[in-house]
Simulated assay, not measured.
Amino acid sequence: MNVLIIEDEFRAANQLQNMLKTCDFEYNLIDIIDTVEDAVVWFQQNEMPNLVFMDIQLADGLSFEIFQKVEVEAPIIFTTAFDQYAIQAFKVNSVDYLLKPIQEEDLQKALQKFSKSNQSQHIENSVLKQLLTSIQTQTEQKNAKTRNGLLVKEGTGFVQIKVADVHYVYSEDSITFAVTKNKRYIVDETIDQLFNSLDSDQFYKINRGQVVAKNAVEKINPYFNHRVKLTVLQERDQEFIVSRQKTSDFKAWMNQ
Rank of each mutant, 00 (worst) to 15 (best):
A74I: 01
A74H: 01
A74G: 03
A74Q: 07
D83P: 00
D83A: 09
Q84H: 15
A86V: 06
Q88H: 09
Q88T: 08
V95I: 03
V95R: 01
D96S: 04
L99W: 07
P101F: 00
Q103C: 04
E104T: 00
L107C: 07
L107H: 04
L107G: 02
L107M: 12
K109N: 04
L111N: 00
K113G: 05
K113L: 08
S115R: 15
K116N: 11
S117L: 12
S117K: 14
N118M: 14
N118D: 13
Q119V: 08
Q121S: 15
V127T: 14
L128K: 03
L128H: 11
K129H: 05
Q130L: 02
L131V: 02
T133R: 10
T133H: 08
S134T: 03
I135E: 07
I135M: 07
T137N: 15
K142W: 05
K145D: 15
R147H: 10
R147A: 09
N148E: 10
L150H: 10
L151N: 12
L151I: 07
L151E: 11
V152W: 02
E154L: 13
T156G: 11
D165H: 00
H167R: 09
Y168M: 05
Y168W: 03
V169D: 07
Y170L: 00
Y170T: 00
E172N: 08
T176S: 14
